[in-house]
Simulated assay, not measured.
Amino acid sequence: MRSMQRYHQQDKDWADIGYSFVVGGDGNIYEGRGWNWQGAHTYGYNSKGYGVSFIGNFQSRLPSTHSMDLVRKQLASCAVRGGRLVSSYIIKGHRDMVTSASPGDAFYQEIKRWDHYG
């Protein structure tokens, strides 16, 4: 996380990590900018939603089921309960919004099957 923060702050000249939250390969969710600060994750859309990044290359494999469930079930329901997301929220892949390979082909096919993808 420190390496990501250093890259975003020093190389990109951003105020902090660009994402609202980051999911590590260790199965934990880390707060980047959190709920209260606008992210710098998707140019042109930062004010419209939260950015959640999964650390890793998901071109041909998926993140762990545990990691995906943390976001899909726990983080999202926490956000709805806390008034950060409306219950009819929409999930998008990064490539749905800008030219990008993110979140990787395998993971993109997976999130397209999730409730709220649209």
Rank of each mutant, 00 (worst) to 15 (best):
I111G: 07
R6K: 13
M97W: 06
G82Y: 15
R113E: 03
H41V: 09
G25Q: 07
L75S: 08
H116T: 04
G104V: 15
D115N: 12
V98N: 00
G34Y: 01
N28T: 13
F21T: 03
Q5F: 07
Y19K: 12
A101M: 14
R72D: 00
H66M: 10
S47G: 03
W14S: 14
I55R: 09
L70F: 01
G49E: 04
G49F: 02
Q109Y: 05
T65A: 12
N36A: 10
S53P: 11
H8S: 06
F107C: 07
R33S: 05
Y30V: 01
G27E: 09
Y30K: 03
A79P: 02
Q10K: 13
R61L: 08
G24H: 05
H41T: 09
P63Y: 13
I111S: 03
Y50L: 02
Y43E: 13
E110D: 04
D69C: 01
Q10H: 12
Y89N: 05
A101W: 13
D16Q: 10
Q9S: 12
Y117G: 04
N36Y: 15
R95H: 06
E31K: 03
Y30T: 00
S67G: 01
G25P: 05
Y50N: 02
V23L: 05
A106K: 08
G27Q: 02
L75V: 07
W37H: 14
G82H: 15
D105E: 11
G83Q: 05
S102P: 02
D13F: 15
W37A: 11
M97Y: 12
F21L: 02
R6G: 02
I55F: 06
D115E: 14
R33M: 08
E31W: 00
P103Q: 06
L75A: 07
H41R: 09
F107T: 05
M1N: 15
E110F: 06
V52P: 00
V98Y: 01
A106L: 06
S53M: 13
K112Y: 01
N46Q: 13
S88V: 07
G51H: 11
Y50S: 03
S67W: 01
S20D: 07
L70D: 00
F54Y: 00
R61P: 02
N28D: 11
S67Y: 03
F21Q: 03
M68C: 01
N46F: 00
G39Q: 12
A106P: 02
S20Y: 04
I29S: 08
S102Q: 07
A106R: 06
D96A: 02
T65E: 09
N46K: 11
R84C: 09
I17P: 05
